[in-house]
Design a protein around this nucleic acid. Structure first.
Lengths: 282, 282
DNA sequence: ATCTAAAATGTAGCTTAACTACATAAAAAT
DNA sequence: ATTTTTATGTAGTTAAGCTACATTTTAGAT
């Protein structure tokens, strides 16, 4: 199944592409409709690159090939508007109401644009892995640690064995005890966090399944995983320090959890009601 | 240039098609998404017709060929994104794509509706309190603990003394040492969390300032605080267990932080750049 | 019923487009 | 300066879409 927001993917991913791939991406952005009935050879010629480069660009954007790229572009070609406006970084003299709008908009956009990156097949596979898992290890550091804790908390509510590990030593030592019945959910915005990579490698060696949740780019963690999930960066604001990616990651985690819970709907509802009762008014 | 309403064309034109072409058209109507990555040979097989028939069907619908048919179907297959219609709680038999939409919509709405609850004066006052604070204590348990940690992390990046305390003992013992130069940020969705109330009472006795971040209701924590902030509940889904309130709270925390940082813009930017550098590629 | 003409459908082979594997060139790291 | 890694291109393979023609089916006329 192809994905449905090709242009969104291109715009989001363009900065992570190789130079010549970027040439292609820019050409597509500027000639969106023309692409649709252009053979790959022609596009290669027009962008002074090669067919192979175009295919590689597709892969970098996590799209199977040129055919699928076209389909996904076609799907987004007539529903533009929402996604085109880009917010600049916050100004030095921003008023409070500007800040409120800016931050809220950013957070809200990060959910919206993450939606475009969701591949239902991967999501399905991830949920099924989690469901079958004896034990789930969630690893993340820094901002991602928060997301890891969140998932752990949720799992506890439905009586699923899940441990959030947020410092590198604990991660490593726990990874040693994993086996093929276990699943690792590796959360890293950059996908290049050394601690996470090391832990994932060990887990992999022990035959545990790996689910990655990273930014939308080709990255190390993603390449090591069995299933890849992405949360939109939109991390425009170096200055704000407000990590919108974290909101997007939480959104994904919510989906994973809800999907997981719905596989055993009756029991989950029961568990959730019980746990809710216990923490009532707290 | 392909057209953008493939399904529409098929539905409108189906009655004028030859019998075997109609078989194909019906199949497409019933398996729209599957068509997109199905080769023409497979479709011919599935419909017990031939490749030539499919091509002829395309021509009958005034579409150049099978390639273009797919593009036009793709363009019309995805007319639904995050829609505005109200979502009820999630059903037992919800499909994955329903779950994805439901959760994303919920999270995104929680930001939107929290925006309506923001009182700029209170926000201004809260930011100013935080700015003047010698030390900030952030308290929360359960889902709110995550928000507390998030704020702590952010403060560390701009070198602001801030401690997130998420278990009741630590909260109580730390509250004892507060004085009038300190600020407590109390996060509780219900506003009735006993541990939080107790801690806030002690902090108040010690003349620390209290900022509450609770659901939008009259509640104990709020009544004890100097400044009240609210995060929209929208906790429609007892069952989902997905706490949208948490996203709304994070949004408020982002605003607080950005407001705080912008009061000392130059220095904050400098600090943020430095801390960002240090954690580069992690 | 039988034959003929027209319409509908299928088969097989051709053409073109997409993709793969390998080779070369450029850039980084040692 | 040398090796290793990364980026890009070339040429050949595979597979998909399409065309031309053959066959079958249908309908109307005798």
């Amino acid at each position: 199944m192809p994905m449905f927001n090709g242009m969104e993917r291109i715009k989001q991913g363009i900065s992570t592409l190789r130079p010549s791939e970027q040439k292609v991406a820019n050409y597509i952005i500027n000639n969106t409709k023309a692409i649709l009935d252009m053979p790959i050879a022609q596009l290669a010629k027009n962008t002074k690159t090669s067919e192979a480069t175009i295919i590689r660009m597709c892969r970098s954007l996590h799209i199977k090939g040129f055919r699928e790229l076209k389909l996904s572009i076609s799907a987004s070609a007539n529903q533009d508007g929402i996604t085109t406006d880009r917010y600049e970084d916050i100004a030095a003299d921003a008023s409070l109401s500007q800040i409120i709008k800016f931050i809220s908009h950013n957070n809200y956009r990060s959910i919206e644009s993450t939606l475009a990156l969701i591949d239902e097949n991967s999501m399905e596979k991830a949920i099924s892995l989690l469901d079958q898992a004896r034990k789930i290890i969630v690893i993340g550091v820094g901002a991602s640690a928060i997301v890891a804790f969140d998932f752990e908390q949720k799992c506890k509510r439905i009586n699923k064995w899940c441990e959030a590990l947020t410092d590198s030593h604990t991660q490593l030592t726990s990874a040693v005890h994993l086996d093929d019945r276990d699943v690792v959910l590796a959360i890293s915005y950059s996908g290049e966090t050394i601690e996470i990579i090391d832990t994932v490698k060990i887990a992999k060696r022990n035959k545990a399944s790996i689910i990655s949740l990273t930014g939308y780019s080709s990255n190390k963690v993603q390449s090591l995983a069995n299933v890849n999930l992405y949360a939109s960066p939109l991390e425009k604001s170096i200055r704000s320090g407000a990590t919108a990616s974290r909101i997007a990651q939480l959104n994904i985690v919510d989906i994973l959890f809800t999907g997981l819970a719905s596989l055993n709907f009756e029991q989950s509802v029961d568990f959730l009601d019980k746990t809710r009762e216990v923490i009532q008014n707290r």
